[in-house]
Amino acid sequence: MTSKQQVALVVGASRGIGRQVAIDLAKEGYAVVVAAKSTSDANATKPFPPDPNSQQSTISTVEREIREAGGTATAIAVDTRNFESVQKLVDETVKIYGHLDVLIYNSGAIWWASIEKTPMKRFQLMQRINVEGLYGTVQAALPHFEKNGWKGRIIVVSPPIYSRFFRGKTAYAMGKVGMSILTKGLAMDWEREGKKDMAITSIWPAASIQSAATGQITKTDPDSIKDLRKATIYSDAILAMLRAPVEDVNGLLELDEDFLRNHEGVTDFSKYSVVEGAVPRRIMPAKFPDLTVAEQADEGRRTDSTKMRTSKL
């Protein structure tokens, strides 16, 4: 790795979207740390490379894919439910490559059902992996961004905030919307603190993307494959976000298709269709509500709990 090579940490990169993002970042010249729970003996994996949406795809095989293509990659196992594990991941990334420029949080747990049919353990798992895992990873990364002169980017896999998203998956939505709130809040912190070279952006698919999760659906409904897009649309959008000026993307909650259209001028998305010639159904609204209020800039009397604490947690 050269001293000028950008370093990207992709959390949740063993398969599907995360794998594609890691591979495409490496193609763009990034040194990539591939992180998730799943590991394997990549040299013993046959056939290679494995189905990217199968259990045979692990951070070990993704690292091998990148290295065999001439890229720079290191696989590091992590349990995002454990803050110590997350801290070790981030610290090891910087120990190996010297610095951290990009953090992408793709790790996630899914359970789409009514509240009545969502057990407490399932709810807790989603909150720990989705919102707590993100928060812990950001907390662990911030000191390293500071050492880097507050220059860096964070990309979060979470949605725009709107009413329909909660329907039929409230427990899941609570965590995912919480992740989007972190994006908005941290962006405001950086703006207020004058960190002009830091940006955090949330991204979500406009149409369903081929993955292990959608694979379960197509098994029972084979025709639904026509509504799927390749994961490359997601990685293309993320790479475009990383190229964009800070002021264009900091605090933005955006869809992959919409960002490519509005910021990159893309009008033809046919190459992303899993089934050639198919036009995948858009699953997200065409327009989202504006979350700002007229009093946006009026903070009133700010309260800083760090200056009020009388005991240590």
Rank of each mutant, 00 (worst) to 15 (best):
N82L: 06
L186Q: 02
N250H: 08
E276Y: 00
E68F: 03
V62R: 04
E65F: 12
K151A: 08
G178V: 10
T170L: 15
Q127R: 12
L252F: 04
F123G: 08
M120R: 07
K230E: 13
V156P: 00
V94M: 11
K117W: 04
V249E: 02
S180E: 05
T183D: 05
Y272E: 09
K271C: 10
I17H: 09
L186P: 01
W112C: 01
D51Q: 09
E247V: 11
D248P: 02
W204M: 10
G18R: 11
Y135I: 06
M1L: 10
M1K: 08
S311V: 14
E116D: 15
T306C: 00
V32E: 01
G16L: 08
E257G: 00
K88N: 13
S163C: 02
S305A: 13
D290S: 07
R167H: 15
S180D: 05
V138P: 00
D268N: 15
E116T: 14
P160Y: 06
Q55N: 10
N53T: 09
I96A: 05
Q127T: 12
R167L: 14
D79L: 12
P285E: 08
S180R: 05
I225F: 05
E63T: 04
F123D: 08
G300E: 11
K307Y: 03
V86Q: 12
A35C: 12
I209M: 10
A199W: 01
K27Q: 13
G251N: 07
R167A: 15
R281E: 15
K226H: 14
A42K: 04
G16T: 08
P280I: 05
G194W: 02
R128G: 11
K147M: 09
L242H: 02
E92V: 02
P159K: 12
D256M: 00
I238F: 04
P285K: 08
T201K: 03
V78C: 13
S114P: 04
G265V: 11
I129G: 04
Q210G: 05
I154D: 00
K176I: 03
R122W: 04
Y105G: 01
P160C: 10
L134W: 01
E264P: 00
A109W: 03
A286G: 06
S60L: 10
T183I: 06
D197W: 01
S311I: 12
K121W: 03
Y234D: 07
T292E: 13
G251F: 06
I238E: 08
K46Y: 02
Y97E: 06
G300K: 11
V90G: 08
Q87W: 12
G136V: 03
V11D: 03
P285T: 10
P119L: 04
P47R: 04
S60T: 09
R192A: 14
N53G: 03
K287C: 01
V279W: 00
S202F: 01
L89N: 09
F165N: 12
A278I: 11
V177P: 00
V11M: 09
F165D: 11
T45F: 08
T303S: 05
P119Q: 01
S180A: 13
K151Y: 02
P285Q: 09
R81M: 14
A244G: 07
E257K: 10
